[in-house]
Design a protein around this nucleic acid. Structure first.
Lengths: 339, 339
DNA sequence: TTGAAAGCGCTAACAT
DNA sequence: ATGTTAGCGCTTTCAA
């Protein structure tokens, strides 16, 4: 393994310790020439700074933590990649920490991890980002954190949002533009704030189009396939049938499509179906699913930039970035044709 | 944040530095009583050892790296969780490093990361685990690594396998037991060793049942939906139609099902379809997909145990663990009914 | 079973 | 623009 230390580099470059340190850390006030000498020595010796030593001396760690309750692997991986991208840019590393947001001992476990590894800061994803007990502990212990898409925006801690309401609004408008007026909606899990956002977008679009909200068209799901099937069964046995169903995630939309297949209902001719999240599954089911793609990676990268900016005392805009989703139109939605 | 040091603990417990160190590191030769005193002080002061200081003094890091080329998020997350589980057990942390296995500069980039962060060891997943240029560099630099499911088993470096051939063998046998004799097979990506394993399992099962291998029934895919559709199109336009199609992953199987739907072919009545991997998608498509579930998490945990065992100089079985997959029977496969 | 002292490789003050 | 010095908190000899 690597053995060269900063002393070796200093000796070989014929400069002092501190000068090497300056070059490595990109501090100013080093002449081009000196810098060149140092860099050459670094290359020649295959020198890599010892992060432990640096962490010890500077009392910081350059490692951030990512906390999540792992249910949706696509989401998680997108978040990880977004955060990692920013880490790469800024010279940070990432520690991942899946957890169970229902675990009552979660706060202590996480605090222990943060202290043990001396994380520089933490990024929280939903539903962990909505645990007040946790964020309060972080605040108490002066642990920097950034939240992804928390439900409550009032806190002073920085956070980033995807505009879920807007996505649902646009999708609903799209269905309306296809001629649909009887549009069913399946709500997501009660514990997830996104559920209400998406529902609001649906309602707002209907209101905007002057379509009265028909309560039987709104069913409570929980983001699972099963709940999608159940709600679809209910919606498709109403006297007055919906001509389109907008499920607030793709798994539930897949459930709707399954039920339609079983009932011999043709999609999209007899029923349009839309989902949310644009999960990989959306492409694999038949007919392929129209959905809302959220900029999860960009969102996560923004969160990381915010956190690292704070850690580096970089001037940071205090506004909360909100990124918009985009419709992905596939085969499952089509123009309304009167029966 | 946490401020107590080992000195504070020693002072409070009325013992020396070294004694505290012994207790923390679970070294022997400490009396019960002393240990109790130290532990009490640790609790009282909310002491957490500083990993940087430890890493510097002991010249090790207790962080392992996970290298992967991120295509299949389900797989990645399973691997991460398996590795993390073992890390938790052994007091290690995990650094994740997605990469592009086709990048020619990959080796240097990874080596730099390993040195920079002074990783204790590395776990490689396919297809990165098959990059000889990389593993050779690791060996040169004395970097410990464990490979998940590499194609070449001859190397002396430890590795773990899932028994892909056996899974494909069993699935093929299952189809045969349902009365199918004309079974199409879609091969996976050429760069992935798993492709050949799965194909071998298929062939072996046919041979075992005395069914002659019919080359037109075997098509080259690449694990993508598109390739599944293409191969399905070819298979379903043969003069002599297959009555079942076994795609060597779920994405390609989804493609087969799509094509069947478009052609008005009923599944499973007219055509049975099976996949491999048991991805989440398998449950969401209609009809739900029969597939082979591999013990990815267990496999990854075993890999981590092997690596950490090596790092800790624990006696490690030199055999290469092979874990079996299981069939998950769903709606897409059924008994052969003669036309 | 316990302790004292040295030093891991680096950064941060404070020179110069 | 560059150098000197003193630790950071821990593990590791080596002693007792």
């Amino acid at each position: 393994m690597s053995k060269a230390t900063i002393y070796d580099v200093a000796a070989r470059a014929g400069v002092s310790l501190k000068t090497v340190s300056r070059v490595i850390n990109k501090e100013p006030h080093v002449s081009e020439k000196t810098q060149g000498k140092v860099l050459t020595a670094v290359k020649a010796l295959d020198y890599h700074p010892n992060l432990s030593a640096r962490g010890l001396a500077a009392n910081r760690s350059d490692i951030i933590g990512l906390l999540y309750d792992n249910s949706n692997c696509t989401y998680i991986v997108d978040v990880q990649n977004g955060v990692l991208e920013q880490c790469r840019l800024e010279g940070f590393d990432l520690l991942i920490h899946p957890c169970n947001y229902l675990d009552p001992g979660l706060g202590d476990e996480i605090l222990a991890t943060v202290k043990r590894t001396r994380l520089a800061g933490v990024i929280l994803t939903p539903p962990v980002s909505d645990l007040l007990s946790l964020t309060r502990k972080f605040a108490d212990q002066q642990i920097d954190f950034v939240r992804l898409s928390p439900g409550a925006r009032n806190s002073s801690s920085p956070c980033v949002f995807s505009n879920e309401k807007q996505g649902a609004f646009e999708m609903t408008n799209h269905l309306i533009s296809l001629g649909h007026t009887r549009i069913g909606f399946i709500v997501g899990h009660r514990d997830h704030c996104s559920s209400m956002e998406r529902l609001d977008g649906y309602k707002e679009a209907l209101a905007g189009a002057g379509i009265k909200i028909h309560n039987p068209f709104i069913r409570q799901g929980d983001y699972s396939l099963k709940s999608g099937e159940k709600c679809a069964g209910e919606l498709l046995s109403l006297k007055k049938l919906p001509t389109a169903i907008f499920a607030s995630n793709d798994e539930m939309a897949a459930g709707v499509i399954m039920v339609a297949h079983r009932l011999g209902i043709q999609i999209p001719n007899q029923l349009s179906v839309a989902g949310f999240d644009d999960s990989p599954t959306a492409q694999y089911i038949w007919p392929s699913l129209t959905s809302v793609k959220q900029p999860i990676m960009a969102l996560a990268q923004t969160a990381a930039a915010l956190l690292i900016g704070k850690l580096k005392n970089r001037a940071v805009d205090e506004l909360q970035p909100i990124l918009d989703g985009k419709l992905v139109l596939r085969e499952s939605t089509g123009r309304y044709v009167s029966a």
